[in-house]
Measured scan of single mutants.
Amino acid sequence: KYFGTAKARYDFCARDRSELSLKEGDIIKILNKKGQQGWWRGEIYGRVGWFPANYVEEDYS
């Protein structure tokens, strides 16, 4: 189950295995919004990890 999707506004390079690298334009499935302050958990291309919420724009459609 996921909470919708978000589109990456910027590139983000994961610093460890718990984080999710993003490329601008990627569409991420949002799995959890209750991580550390400002971090969401998501899935993209079969990978799961945490990413900074301010790097994405949530899709409300």
Rank of each mutant, 00 (worst) to 15 (best):
W50D: 05
F51P: 03
A8G: 00
E58T: 11
E57A: 13
Q36V: 13
G38T: 03
R47E: 10
R15H: 08
I30T: 00
L31E: 04
Y10V: 10
D11G: 09
D16I: 02
D26C: 03
S61W: 12
A6M: 03
L31M: 07
L22Y: 03
A14S: 09
N54C: 13
K7R: 13
S18E: 08
A53Q: 09
F51E: 01
A8V: 13
F51I: 03
Y60S: 14
K29I: 07
E19T: 01
P52C: 00
E57N: 10
W39H: 05
A53H: 13
G35Q: 08
D11L: 04
Y2I: 12
K23Q: 09
D11W: 03
S21K: 04
A8P: 04
K34D: 13
D16R: 12
N32R: 09
L20G: 01
G25K: 05
V56L: 04
G46T: 05
V56T: 02
G25P: 04
R9Q: 08
Y10A: 14
C13I: 12
I27G: 03
E57Q: 12
R47A: 08
E57D: 10
A53C: 12
D26H: 00
Q36I: 12
S18F: 14
D59C: 11
E24Q: 13
R15K: 11
K29Q: 08
G38Q: 10
I28Q: 02
R41W: 11
K33Y: 06
A53P: 09
S61N: 05
A6S: 04
A53R: 11
R15C: 06
W50L: 07
G42K: 00
W40R: 00
R41I: 06
V56D: 00
D26L: 02
G38K: 09
R15W: 03
N32T: 11
L20R: 01
Y2V: 09
Y45I: 06
A6W: 01
Y55V: 12
Y60P: 10
D59H: 12
L20V: 04
K7C: 13
R15D: 06
S21R: 03
W50C: 15
R17K: 15
G35Y: 04
V56Q: 00
A14K: 03
I30S: 04
G46F: 00
G4V: 09
E58F: 08
S18K: 09
E58I: 07
R17D: 13
E58Y: 13
Q37K: 13
L22I: 14
K34C: 11
K1Y: 09
R15Y: 06
Y10G: 10
I30Y: 03
G38F: 02
I28R: 00
V56M: 00
K1T: 08
F12Y: 15
A53W: 06
V48G: 05
W39N: 03
E24M: 14
G25D: 05
W39M: 13
Y10R: 15
Q36P: 15
V48N: 05
G4Q: 11
G25M: 03
D59R: 08
A8S: 05
I44P: 05
K1I: 03
A53K: 09
L20F: 01
W50M: 07
G46Q: 08
V56R: 00
C13T: 15
W50T: 04
I30N: 02
A6F: 03
K33D: 03
Y55G: 06
D26E: 10
R47N: 08
I27H: 11
G49N: 00
K7V: 11
E57R: 11
E43M: 07
R47L: 05
G46V: 03
R41P: 04
K34N: 15
P52T: 02
D11I: 03
Q36D: 12
K29L: 13
N54W: 12
T5A: 12
